[in-house]
Design a protein around this nucleic acid. Sequence first.
DNA 1: TATCTTATTGTAATAAGTTACAATAAGAAG
DNA 2: CTTCTTATTGTAACTTATTACAATAAGATA
Lengths: 138, 138
Amino acid sequence: MENTPTQIASQIRSMGFRMTPQRMEILAILSQSEHLTPTQIHAQLVCKVPGFTEPTLYRTLDFLCKNGFVQATHVGNGKMQYELTDSMHHHTVCKECGQRKLISSEIMQEIYDRFETETGFKLMEHHLTLNGLCPDCK
Amino acid sequence: MENTPTQIASQIRSMGFRMTPQRMEILAILSQSEHLTPTQIHAQLVCKVPGFTEPTLYRTLDFLCKNGFVQATHVGNGKMQYELTDSMHHHTVCKECGQRKLISSEIMQEIYDRFETETGFKLMEHHLTLNGLCPDCK
DNA sequence: TATCTTATTGTAATAAGTTACAATAAGAAG
DNA sequence: CTTCTTATTGTAACTTATTACAATAAGATA
């Protein structure tokens, strides 16, 4: 499963939805960085397309999430960040020093596998942020 | 570690913070149900204390979270829910049928233990919601 | 290419959440 | 009980996010 804006665009069309300049613009921005908040995305949007409206942004993010092209991640208290669905990757965030660290995907894959065999539940999160204390602050 | 409103109140005082009717009211509401959104909590608050303001609610939730008395949980797309910090408990939510199910804490404890030994990171989440497909919808 | 259907967008109004700062009251000390 | 300090609240203004509905334009069809 690929995830360049153009490839996502053709997937959207083949699913019977319409491809619009607005959606393309958002995909382009998401393809260039990770962990973007709606506000950050909107700031970039209005630079490129002056009249871009909030409802369209929020609806599009929602649409892309529902269809699996984008992942919403919760970070700390309530803030959501968006990014293109990529290969699995996960973070730890230390409550003490705030440091953010990638977790090796082998570890998470093993843990996912184990969880799935024990519960019968198929996990679909590609990006999870786990809060706690890093080895140094512990 | 206990978690009735009265016990939390004395902990708050012994930590050098002040105990106010507003905080007590919020603790009382949280002690009576789980998975409450700020809006739900605020609705209950204005019934009991007519002039209760939003900033106080949000600041208090934040305060209680920062000090570990309350847990914020993300559910689906961006919505946060709050509840008193209780014994560990975790949920799966099926993306297909929406069914919400408790995960046995033994399974999660094992997974947490394993995660902690392999990464050196001390997890502090008491409540995690995992999204995916339940055995029936899979 | 012109026409048609309807998914998607923009508009306008509203709801939810946050911030700065002055007013209040919790709890300590006399 | 009274006074004092300052953490906590309320006020007012603002930012972020959502909703309802009419206007627009993507893509299908002829």
